[in-house]
Design a protein around this nucleic acid. Structure first.
Length: 456
RNA sequence: GGUGGAGUGGCUGAGCGGCCCAAAGCAGCAGCCUGCAAAGCUGUAAAACCACGGGUUCAAAUCCCGUCUCCACCUCCA
């Protein structure tokens, strides 16, 4: 299979470093405020990538997504809210975990920055020993990475130092692009937000966290490092510099997901065009949201609009309706995935094409249903279920989940309506139907019976 | 200034030298079903001169050159 390596800027054959095993590290959120749609896109993209490597290739995948739980913004936001920063971080993280869970994009490995302070300190010491980092001056605990000492600096994003804008020299920083590895504790910051180090009390810079956590979780060398396109510079460039300068092989491949846009512009807090997760969940089921997030190739930008989400709701309903109807006459069994689907996924995880195959299969299955061709229905059903599993689409979200009383009520109304229809009292039948609709119930008159489901 | 990416039907969105008079979905239309709608299914007309102008090739949406427009990154960001 091939994947697009965003450092090499080309499609490459993917071969795990260790046979049968794949290590993936994806940059997770800084838990400073509630998640937005962009976080979900990244999570779903890499979840599908991991699932395909597991289901499609049988690899044992270790997917790591870190949590940055100490950072300037967390401290600033906590102060503004009058909260302990640790409380804010854990509350926000719980919110992230909730939506990841809802979308089926949870990960088993979630290292926290605050749990890896010692690893970061060791790594910084190693960089100083090797001549790639320096302490600002004896009076400050600031430690910077010395970009001039590392010839490969800029190779991830193909930029030259002289062309880049940089930060003002100060605080012991020798060059505009030298970046902080360790930041001296500042007056007024909570005591709990700093740690002892050989250079004095302080806290880690952002980039060193990920280098330390990849080392701890995946070792000196691993297969894939991922994250949003906006993290390429400076974050990933700096991570690469740190880990390489420390003498580690680091990641074999880089993968970056495209950003979510609104009217063509990047969704971000600073632009104030962020779409909240709540808004998304009001418009669609988790399966529909996942479908929408996956409907554009992971490297393309994905433009948000309410109508694009309702389209996804309809599309998912088409798939789940087939599964529901087919399930009445056939059972799903483990089966080979359609070749076109496998080909699409093997071509740099081309999910839009894979979704096309899924819909094609649904159409084949529906045709078979109409023709009462049970064998073909069973095959299509099995394939659809399997493809949906790879894509992580939970098709059961509008299944009948209700209390016994509610079910009795609904079934009673349906019986009333059918009695009215039998009596040719259509006015009353329509009235009952309107009542069901108001309850959020959609009914479907099939040959000889009426089935119901929750409306989308 | 530097580094990447994008411009395909009414909309979303694939394709990246011949299988493309361009996948799939949504919307539209028709048929089936229905008491009628809705829902569901099936089929399907029209609709894309593939941003624009050149070029290469037997053959280009796909390669090359130029132009225009848009986006991202170079500060924190998934």
């Amino acid at each position: 299979m091939k994947l697009y390596d965003s450092k090499l800027q080309s499609l490459v054959d993917f071969v795990p470093l260790t046979q049968g095993k794949v290590g993936i590290y994806v940059c997770g959120p800084t838990v400073q405020s509630a998640p937005h749609v962009g976080h979900l896109r990244s999570a779903v993209a890499f979840d599908i990538i991991a699932k395909w490597l597991e289901i499609g290739h049988g690899y044992e995948v270790k997917l790591v997504r870190n949590v940055t739980d100490i950072d300037d913004k967390i401290l600033v936001n906590a102060t503004a809210l009058g909260k302990d920063w640790r409380e804010l971080a854990s509350t926000v993280e719980a919110g992230f975990n909730e939506v990841y869970e809802a979308l089926g994009a949870s990960v088993a490995h979630k290292p926290h920055a605050t749990e890896h302070i010692q690893g970061m300190i060791s790594l910084i010491e190693r960089l100083i020993e090797r001549g790639h980092a320096y302490q600002a001056d004896s009076a400050s605990a600031n430690v910077f990475f010395d970009t001039a000492s590392f010839a490969g600096y800029g190779e991830l994003t193909r930029q030259k130092l002289e062309n880049m804008e940089g930060e003002a020299i100060g605080g012991g920083r020798r060059a505009a692009h030298d970046f902080a590895l360790w930041k001296s504790a500042k007056a007024g910051e909570p005591e709990t937000a700093s740690w002892d180090s050989p250079w004095g009390r302080g806290r880690p810079g952002w980039h060193i966290e990920c280098s330390a956590m990849t080392l701890s979780e995946l070792g000196e060398t691993f297969d894939i490092h991922g994250g949003g396109l906006d993290l390429r510079f400076p974050h990933h460039e700096n991570e690469l510099a740190q880990s390489s300068a420390a003498g580690f092989g680091f990641t074999k491949h880089w993968m970056h997901n495209g950003l979510v846009t609104v009217s063509g512009q990047k969704m971000s807090k600073s632009l104030g065009n962020g779409v909240s997760v709540e808004e998304l969940f009001e418009l669609g089921t988790p399966a529909a949201i996942r479908y929408w997030l996956a409907s554009a190739h992971y490297r393309s930008s994905l433009d948000y609009s309410p109508s694009s989400l309702t389209e996804a709701v309809t599309a998912v309903a088409r798939i789940s309706n087939f599964v529901r109807r087919a399930g009445e006459v056939a059972t799903s069994s483990p089966i080979e995935l359609p070749q076109e689907f496998q080909d699409a996924m093997n071509a740099d995880f081309n999910v839009p094409v894979a979704l096309g195959v899924l819909h094609d299969t649904v159409r084949v299955g529906n045709t078979a249903l109409d023709a009462a061709d049970k064998d073909s229905v069973a095959t299509a059903l099995s394939q659809v279920v399997r493809m949906s599993a790879v894509l992580g689409l939970d098709l059961t979200s509008n299944e009948k989940v209700a209390t016994a009383e509610t079910i009795d009520l609904i079934e009673g109304l349906i019986a009333d309506r059918n009695q009215a229809r039998a009596d040719k009292d259509y006015a009353r039948a329509d009235l009952v139907r309107a009542e069901l609709t108001a309850m959020g119930v959609t009914i479907e008159d099939q040959a000889g019976k009426t089935v119901w489901m929750w409306s989308n």
